[in-house]
Amino acid sequence: MGGTLVIWWPAFTLGACNAIFFDNVLALWAVATAALLSGVVLRRRGPLPLAGWVALSLPSVWVLLAAVAPRSHGFPYLHYAEALLTLVGAPLLAWLLSRILVPDYSSLPVSQRLGALAVTVVVGGLAFLLGKFNYLFLTCADFDVSGNNSPAHCAHGKPFNRG
């Protein structure tokens, strides 16, 4: 469940707007940095593999890269780095959160660990499709009321009455 919280919104916005917005990447950064710092402070949970440290560091690398990229000429491929970071980093972060939140995660059978990963990937895929086909159940006004930009292919009309 924790993994799906990390992946669903970036996948939805990618489907709806063909973009992963900076707030998605910064949310990923916040969770990854909190997990990284917790791993440093609370070493009692066991050693984190090198791949884990690298995965948790990726969002900070993106922030540093964005900060030093020249603004006048731009860094034309930075948005591809953001998308790659989110699409690769989110599942890795979900895996790490599983290891942190479920103390006996490593003792689970491989099939159950892969099943948990599959659930996260499926929810991410479904969220992408929900974003892609948002016009079937949301209107442009729903996006506006929530403070989000309306995607190009949203349905025009009043917000759906939720109550």
Rank of each mutant, 00 (worst) to 15 (best):
R44D: 10
K132M: 05
A34P: 04
K132E: 11
L65D: 01
P76C: 00
V119N: 03
G147P: 03
Q112R: 14
P109G: 07
F160Q: 02
Y77A: 06
N24C: 14
A55Y: 03
L138V: 01
G115K: 06
T120E: 10
V63S: 08
C154H: 11
N148Q: 13
H73D: 10
G125D: 00
S146D: 14
P10W: 09
W53M: 02
H73S: 13
S150E: 15
N149C: 03
W53L: 05
F21H: 14
A66N: 14
L84A: 15
S111P: 03
C140G: 15
V119C: 04
T139K: 08
A81L: 13
L138M: 13
G52H: 08
G89H: 12
H73M: 10
A155W: 07
V110M: 08
Y80L: 08
F75I: 01
V41S: 05
D142G: 01
L50I: 07
Y80S: 08
A69R: 13
W8M: 14
P49N: 05
P59M: 14
K132H: 11
P103G: 03
C154Y: 12
V6H: 06
L96T: 02
D142K: 06
G3Y: 07
P109H: 13
L129K: 00
L117Y: 09
V68W: 15
L78V: 06
L14R: 01
N24S: 15
A27P: 08
T120L: 04
T4I: 14
A27C: 09
G131Y: 02
E82C: 08
W8H: 15
D104N: 10
D144I: 13
Y80I: 02
G124S: 03
L136G: 06
L138H: 07
R113N: 01
M1E: 02
N161F: 00
R162Y: 00
A11K: 06
H156C: 08
N24V: 10
V25H: 14
Q112I: 04
L93S: 09
L96N: 05
L42C: 09
G89D: 07
A83P: 04
W95Q: 11
Q112M: 09
A35H: 08
A90C: 14
P151M: 05
A30W: 15
W9F: 13
G2M: 11
R162V: 00
L64N: 03
G3V: 10
S107H: 04
